[in-house]
Amino acid sequence: MTLVLRHRPLLGAVSAEWVRLRSVRSTWAGLAAALALTLLVAPGTALALATNMDNGLVPAVEIPASEAALNAIVWAAQFAVVGVAVVFVTAEYVNGAVHFSLQAVPVRRRLLAAKAIVLSTVVAAAAVVMTVAGTLLAHALLSHPLLGDHGTLKLSDAVPDVLRAIVHLVTIALIGLGFGAALRSTATALGAVFLLILGLPAILVMTGADVLLPYLSLVGGISLMDGALIMGPPPEATGSPLSGLVVLMSWAICALTVGTLVLEHRDA
């Protein structure tokens, strides 16, 4: 009984955040953009690869179609997802709506935890839809006789790839949530997240500090995806899928920790 009572405030907060997330258009626009990007880039990747194989530029092998979807998620869709995550917090600060949120849930880490739970669930569901749809579309292209029939679609490839997409997009969303809570301004938080995902890798490559690359979220994500089809640095510069998972989760934990500390200690 005590246990049930103790968990009710978090349940209530989660239920409230679910209403908040689904009741604004920007959430659905962002997720629709992520899906659209997947459906655009996944077949594009497949098409480019098939053409290169036919022209003898790369060795002709059978490629799991789901990797085309993963490539689209790493290089395109994650940016739309991180946008949804950032705005989920920063919109509270645009005109002070956070006052009402905090009046209802004054324990601030509970408010952020509730947002994290709701966001993770929604993003995980979106990741499944994106990966499945992207895979099917890429497969339809790759397996077309006109394109050389290179595609394979096996559950043993696709299921782990769906899981990888879920982990990648959920961790990147939590990173966005943490940045949003820490920085409060949509523009600043989006700028900072994009700097982390794209800017830092570019800077490291330009300054020759490549050894640090595997510790960044972008390369961590590429390592996690673990596919020949995923664009990225040469395999020796990326780590194992497990190390990629650790890198992504570390960034997510750091971002959420900083976000929680700022939320707890700064005036609302």
Binding site: R20, H99, A104
Partner: peptide, 25 residues
């Protein structure tokens, strides 16, 4: 009510109230 304008401009009045209501069952 500290600032009555402190509601997400893209959220309906009903959704704003429902979110608050859900937090307290």
């Amino acid at each position: 009510v500290l600032d009555a304008r402190a509601v997400h401009p893209g959220r309906s009045a009903r959704s704003h109230l429902r979110a608050l209501a859900r937090s307290h069952h």
